[in-house]
Design a protein around this nucleic acid. Structure first.
Lengths: 170, 170
DNA sequence: TAAGATTGAGACCTCAATCTTG
DNA sequence: CAAGATTGAGGTCTCAATCTTA
């Protein structure tokens, strides 16, 4: 639906050169809608139930999985799928909430380490169940095991193209 | 990867109750990344090549497909997968660019019709090829015909759940 | 100088409150 | 009053410029 044919004259018929074949459009349109609606759904759930954005949750979550609950800002940005600038703004907020602290890397002062605090860890533990439940309800339980596997493979294929066209962290 | 297990003690091993099974996580993680990266890619392409946001393009595009190039604001919001408030802000900008005009519905003054102008139509026609090319490169050409079909089905299944949990336009 | 990181300005979106029409 | 639509405030993100360390 996204790249459908504009109708220049009076009515909605397709008099223009087709940009996507009708069947391609039928498959692309649901994905186009999904990538708008699913992020909004995850964000709404997290804001309503935990008072933080989905991205903030991801940042805390990545740190909670890391050795010593510590990651360099640039590595964290990559793991959280965000720009370094975006991460910097977000970490500033999370630091003022007492969930993260920052300190320069001891060996090389150019790096900044983000470190999850005790309170930050507690926040992840408290927020995770709601997030997991949402992912289960909206995605995992909506699909057969085979579809879920397919979806993983398909997503990876698309990501290869996306990362090639717009390399992350630039 | 999103809902992985936090590591409370020193290191990264999984001593916690699992929130998603490892194989579920392997399939969810690429999708989690995709829904963050693909919208950003589409937006970047449109901003760089056409000077408008992806959402603005979608709004113009939906109007270009509509009979008489006209849609009620609330209908347009649904077709563009955005809230009415978001649409209202965006249409104000597009109106000041001369690509859309608004007028109250003649039969029922409660409705507002958004109407694509001649310049707006030209803008869609000029912007569409770059968008379609991007969708082709990143998604369609990255997949087999079967995968594309699968992806459409899978997306629809997830959308049913998303729409049930957070109905659009509220 | 280059890489990592931060900052401020501007643009944009969300939410809640408000206005309007029937 | 209810539904459609708009508005302003506040928070967040992007982009480009800047700062810092090696």
């Amino acid at each position: 639906m996204s790249p459908a044919n504009p109708s220049p004259a009076g009515e909605g018929a397709a008099e223009q050169p087709r940009w996507l074949a009708a069947d391609e459009l039928d498959d692309w349109a649901p994905l186009a809608r999904l990538i708008m609606r699913l992020p909004a759904a995850l964000d709404t759930q997290m804001r309503n139930d935990a008072g933080i954005s989905h991205f903030e949750y991801i940042v805390l979550s990545r740190l909670s999985e890391a050795p010593r609950h510590t990651l360099r800002m640039s590595d964290l940005a990559g793991l959280a799928n965000g720009s370094l600038s975006r991460l910097s703004h977000v970490v500033k907020r999370l630091e003022s909430s007492g969930w993260i602290r920052r300190e320069p890397c001891a060996e090389d002062g150019r790096f900044t380490n983000a470190i999850l605090t005790k309170d930050g860890y507690a926040k992840v533990v408290a927020s995770a169940p709601g997030h997991v439940e949402t992912v289960r309800t909206l995605v995992i339980d909506a699909l057969t095991a085979g579809q879920l596997r397919q979806l993983g493979d398909i997503s990876k294929r698309i990501l290869l193209r996306v990362d090639a066209a717009w390399p992350p962290n630039t």
